[in-house]
Design a binder for these strands. Structure first.
Lengths: 178, 178
DNA sequence: AACTCGATTGACCGAATGGTCAAGTCGCTC
DNA sequence: GAGCGACTTGACCATTCGGTCAATCGAGTT
């Protein structure tokens, strides 16, 4: 599944045939259809699994940190590290967003990600650290910054993690707290 | 070209055949290959043209406004309005980013967009309105917020422009000025 | 050794696609 | 009205792809 994700990301979903995938794994085509009922299902599984991986990484980084703003910072840094290590998935998320049939999975992934962030933002609003605004919009803003900086500096150039995530964190925290 | 962009956006680039495009236009296939040398070239042309359209809209909105922060705000609002009216192109930009062969066009588009924003940010830094930081990273942050809010609130839900662009502007300006 | 059955193979198939081209059409000029 | 060339048509072709399936393998069981 990892190999398939890498191929999809390198060459695109459609241009990568099932034959490509199985031959790159050195197995027959039958074994593919033994485990997955279609090429489409394979991508859906990849999307779900990779999002789980990202979320686990975030939760591990946050641990039981009590400060909501610090939780957000740790989540941002963990996400950027994870994306840098798994750039294949980044491309796949982007592709999946362009075809209607993958929308449900993707929307679900996004809802989870936003809900996680919203929770921390609400805590910070209660603490008076963030002014009272729509927490979901703020969360979307944070996600946008993280994704864009990831794409621009890890994917297109090859910057070190710290410099970029420092920038993301400071932009987001200022954006949140004002 | 507009019709083709809409079809690509609705059904995805690969699943939309040249036959689909020409029959939806009520013309023969030959006329397509008279104007474009390939399906790939068509998408490239669409990407270039639509980005020009967006940029014109931004420049029209900014006019000769002297305040750099206000220029950024006007640019953000104009972009969001334009994306809301031309959602087809948003999906296409996203798709094109997932296939290597479209990367050059897309990278060029992005460089232009970032350079525009960077110019205003540098002006604001000179004026002392923004602290001295890497202007490009700030610009990427702004673009990220705009794109994410656009996708989440115009594309997936159907929110009014003002509420969303107010949020985008305030998040970005706080993120920039701190 | 014979049997079982989950796992695996890869030749094969129907469908669809990007692109070609011989055959027009139509407005223009001389 | 003949000639011309820009433009249009759609049947056609070569190729590719997702998916099927009869055949085979081989580890465990009797």
């Amino acid at each position: 599944m990892d190999r398939a994700a890498t191929l999809f990301a390198e060459r695109g979903y459609h241009p990568t045939s099932v034959a490509d995938i199985v031959s790159s794994l050195g197995v027959g085509k039958g074994v593919f259809y033994w485990y997955f009922s279609s090429k489409e299902e394979l991508l859906v599984e990849i999307l779900k699994a990779s999002h789980q991986g990202l979320r686990r990484r975030q939760q591990a980084a946050i641990g039981d940190e009590p400060d909501p703003l610090l939780r957000i910072e740790l989540g941002i840094r963990a996400s950027m590290e994870w994306f840098r290590e798994h750039r294949q998935f980044f491309t796949l998320f982007q592709f999946a967003a362009t075809e209607e049939r993958f929308a449900p999975v993707l929307r679900n992934n996004e809802e989870v990600a936003i809900a996680d962030t919203v929770r921390h933002i609400k805590d910070a609003i209660v603490d008076g650290r963030i002014a009272d605004q729509d927490p979901e919009m703020l969360a979307q803003g944070v996600v946008g910054v993280v994704e864009q900086l990831t794409r621009a500096y890890f994917f297109e150039r090859d910057e070190p993690v710290d410099r970029v995530s420092d920038a993301a964190v400071s932009f987001c925290l200022r954006g949140l707290t004002g």
